[in-house]
Write a protein that binds this DNA or RNA. Structure first.
Lengths: 255, 255
DNA sequence: TGTCATTTGTGCGTATGTATC
DNA sequence: GGATACATACGCACAAATGAC
């Protein structure tokens, strides 16, 4: 996507072809490849500036991204240090602080298996931790890294009737809650997630293409709007070895 | 307000009295005070620039801080929205109340099974995602809700030699990193956690008193000091059905 | 120990892309 | 489509921490 702005100058500064995200991805790839093992120092910002032909700001933005998702440790006066180099076998979903929560996660391919109106009965409502006898839209979604690869996640999603009209593209790359946000002008402000391990039921095993009884990481997500309204409930089943959740936490500085 | 930065000018640059942290603190104070209730939009960046007499970069840095710690939701094209008006002490950054995340030891009864000096070989270092050929103290800990109940967690902990002298009470109730903080006057400033499902090895199954091959939730924790030093590594194995990890995420990144 | 070059952190000004309204 | 507002990117300058001499 030919970028080419310029200042008030006469020359054509010709912006670099790289955005900070491109650079971040590239660096992550190199870390995974072992070019910068754990404990090693990354090249200095100045070097990266030269290498990628971008401004220092852009490099710093990329490094910030890597730090946020737990790859780097940064300190004033010394180059960034690699603190994680987990190989990307079964990829890692890094939550810097939020939201790539179940997000596009590096651009997963979502397949909508079904979508239907349901009434939650007592038992099911209890399991989902919401009010019984209410109407919801139930969807089943498979998520893959590649359009033809094995799925790493099978999700059962329940959407509040108010947002029943939400539409998903054929090969949607966004998470459902992102689509809801954009189509209904609500803001998901809070997500409560519960994670546990479980054995794959035949139902789940079939969709994830794993043996029945395989260890599954099960994440129950409750999405709330900024007004405290329950918008979406998700039960995400992750196939073993194909997915890993990473969370980076910072202790609050002053306040 | 005395702004007067400039480029190659002759005037004295005289920076604004406010840094982005000052501005962040101030805005947080105003949010706490109710000036900007939940759901309200903050003034636009341009307005804040005028108000504080700083550059747009500085304002954006402050807003980024507020987003990171869960006060704001940001979206391109529209002013930031306040999504939370409360403060959590201690750990947090977006991840709502880490207390639960990291305090799973809190209130639990910990049993120290072993403690020994080890040198991490390449393979093991790789698995733990840290530098090889380094010396660490390895501990094994069992966690129970009741002194006589079944354990819900078996942890393998690796402590940096500098903190090797850390002592645990017979029936310690604190998490190890807490003990380290208090005994060595360091501050754990960053934690990176990775979660995945796995089948219980015979070793783990024995200690958790579950059948071999049971679905296990495996959490790898890396604890870093405020100086970026790796202090502790933990591999926590959770027994199925006996434990559930709950994470409350507050909004951050909206792009 | 202290000096000093290096490196990152913070801040300024500006230009332009792109989503929202 | 147009106006507004945030996102990304360029370049520069100085402060503060590091690390080596």
């Amino acid at each position: 996507m030919a970028r080419s702005g310029q200042q008030g100058a006469i020359e054509a500064p010709v912006r670099s072809r790289f955005g900070y995200r491109d650079i971040a991805k590239r660096l992550i790839g190199e870390i995974h490849a072992g070019d910068w093992p754990v404990g090693a120092k990354l090249p200095t910002e100045a070097v990266l500036v030269d290498r990628f032909g971008v401004s220092r700001n852009t490099v710093r933005e990329a490094l910030r991204e890597l730090r946020d998702i737990g790859y780097l440790s940064k300190r004033r006066g010394t180059p960034s240090v690699v603190i994680s180099a987990v190989t990307e076998k079964g990829f890692v979903n890094s939550i810097g602080s939020i939201s790539e929560l179940l997000e596009y996660a590096g651009g997963a391919h979502n397949t909508l298996l079904s979508s239907e109106q349901v009434v939650l009965l007592r038992e099911q409502a209890l399991r989902l931790d919401c009010a019984p006898d209410t109407e919801w839209v139930r969807m089943q979604v498979l998520r893959r890294r590649d359009p033809i690869g094995l799925p790493f996640c099978y999700s059962e999603l329940f959407v509040h009737p108010r947002f029943a009209g939400v539409t998903l593209e054929a090969d949607e790359r966004r998470a459902l809650y992102r689509a809801i946000e954009q189509q209904f002008d609500v803001v998901i402000a809070r997500v409560v997630q519960e994670i546990e391990a479980a054995a794959a039921s035949s139902h789940v095993a079939l969709r994830l293409e794993v043996p029945e009884g395989s260890p599954i990481m099960l994440a129950r997500n409750h999405f709330y709007s900024d007004e405290g309204e329950l918008v979406e409930i998700g039960m995400a089943h992750f196939a073993p070895g194909r997915y890993r959740l990473r969370i980076a936490l910072d202790r609050r500085r002053a306040d």
